[in-house]
Design a binder for these strands. Structure first.
Length: 229
DNA sequence: CCAGACGTTGTT
DNA sequence: GTCTGG
DNA sequence: CCAGACGTTGTT
DNA sequence: GTCTGG
């Protein structure tokens, strides 16, 4: 699952990693990207540009755009069939750059936020789909969603689903409009657990209004009893 | 034929 | 409890 | 994903 | 837009 993520890489790093022609001149580091907010995407339409779309896919036929608030993820096993996603799966795929994401690990009644990242804090990309919705006022809204799959053993400690992270060698196929559906589906696998790690963070991240470096600071271990001597 | 749904997560 | 908004 | 609202009247 | 249910 993925309901919050992080993108702090410099524009230069994003440009290099995704082989882009240009990137926005000034991008602030984001430590707490939440659903409904604009997220940077690289679409099949403009594979050499970083553009921004609202997170939470609104199907083109939706009457109420609020449905987008819930469609922040799409099960990769069923994207080919589900009415909300199938046309996007055929024609509108994207990469969503990130350097990490959050999960909330259940511990009894408590939910402890955890920051998940790649080893060496490498920049990576979620597999995404995007869509265009025509609002009654005539404006166009571009939205996107992040695909999910089964968790690898590491991530299964946190959740029974995980976001699809694409290895670099798959970027071009995912954005190729002529790639056959079977080839595309085959890319939607759990990422290698040996290249991932996570640690607990403070509950500062819980509120989407908190978007600071504090969100990814490792939680300090509870003070241990000093031995009495 | 038209009307109405179309999704994810998690929880029970 | 359930929905909306970020 | 979590946080926060969730209603009416009237008044400023 | 397209499928399902009546």
């Amino acid at each position: 699952m993925c309901g919050r993520f992080v993108l702090t890489a410099t524009t230069e790093a994003i440009q290099q990693t995704f082989d882009l022609d240009s990137v926005p001149t000034s991008m602030l580091p984001r430590y707490n990207i939440a659903p409904t907010q604009p997220v940077g995407v690289i679409t099949n339409d403009h594979p050499r540009q970083l553009t921004f779309q609202r997170w939470g896919l609104i199907p083109s036929w939706a009457k109420d755009p609020a449905i987008g608030n819930t469609l922040i993820n799409a099960r990769s096993e069923t994207v080919e069939e589900k009415p909300a996603f199938r046309s996007a799966f055929k024609r509108r795929r994207c990469l969503i750059p990130a350097d990490g994401f959050y999960e909330w690990k259940k511990d009894g009644k408590e939910k402890k936020p955890v920051f998940v990242h790649l080893k060496d804090n490498e920049l990576f990309a979620f597999a995404g789909l995007w869509e265009v919705w025509h609002s009654p006022d005539g404006s166009e809204v571009q939205t996107c969603t992040i695909l999910t799959t089964d968790p690898n053993p590491l991530m299964s400690q946190l959740h029974h689903r995980m976001a699809v992270i694409l290895p670099k060698e798959d970027y071009s196929v995912w954005l190729d409009k002529d790639a056959p559906p079977d080839v595309l589906k085959a890319l939607l696998q759990p990422y290698d657990e040996n290249r991932m790690a996570f640690y607990e963070v403070s509950k500062v991240v819980n509120s989407p209004y908190n978007d600071s470096a504090e969100c990814i600071v490792p939680l300090t271990a509870p003070p241990t009893q000093t031995p009495m001597l």
